[in-house]
Amino acid sequence: MKIIRKIKNINSNLSLRSFTVFYRNYMVWLKYYKPGVIGDILEPLLYLAALGFGVGKFIHNIDGISYLKYIVPGIIASSSMYAAAFESTFGAYTRMVTNGIYEAILLTPVGIEDIVLGEVLWGTAKAFMSGMAVLIIGIAFRWTISPFSFFIPVIIILNGILFSSLSLLITSFSPSYDFFSYYFTIVVSTMFLFSGVFYPISSLPYLVKYFVYIMPLYYTVSIIRMLDEGIIHPLILSSYLSVIILFALIFFYASVFFIRKRVIK
């Protein structure tokens, strides 16, 4: 009951002012975007090329499709995860702690709820850029040809919201930049390697497989792969979507709660 009241309270304080926070980040990004773009867009393409062509030479197909085509959906999901995670940890920490931007914004009518929402939207925008770059390459080279692929951007956005929120939650606890290495090693890289980006999780040992089900990335990879291959299982699709949305909501509200706790004494 207490939680419901808190959520209602957060909802009533959310407003369009969150876009001003988004816009501020965008304005700063416009000034320094060049080095950032390399990480967000070029890196996933390097993965795609190196593994797709390199490893793909030895693995002729997985479930009947070429290895390169197989990993495209996974790279879309994982690159958008990385982009959101970087922005909402290192980027957000710099704004919140190092530069005191949150405190400065709180002196205006923009509240902490709007700041967090604005940050999530911004992290999602970065995720979108990164994921879309891979998708566009995929479509351009006809690696993905299903008409359902046009729904993939929606999943990229959900994935961005999910990982921005989770990363902000981590940031709200983080005592320093160093702390993020734990997050990236234990959470982000683990998901990158075990969520079915590079191989079907059915090839994993029995116990490890169950562990994968608590990884949010698994669900986005699966949905994007479904859309990409054009074989839709409505029940799986809807239940996986629900899982993603549930994860995203939990992480979002938790991060509002804990960032408020951190910034307002």
Partner: peptide
Amino acid sequence: VPQDDNLDEDL
């Protein structure tokens, strides 16, 4: 005007 200055360094 808070005691510690929190201008936006990036702008």
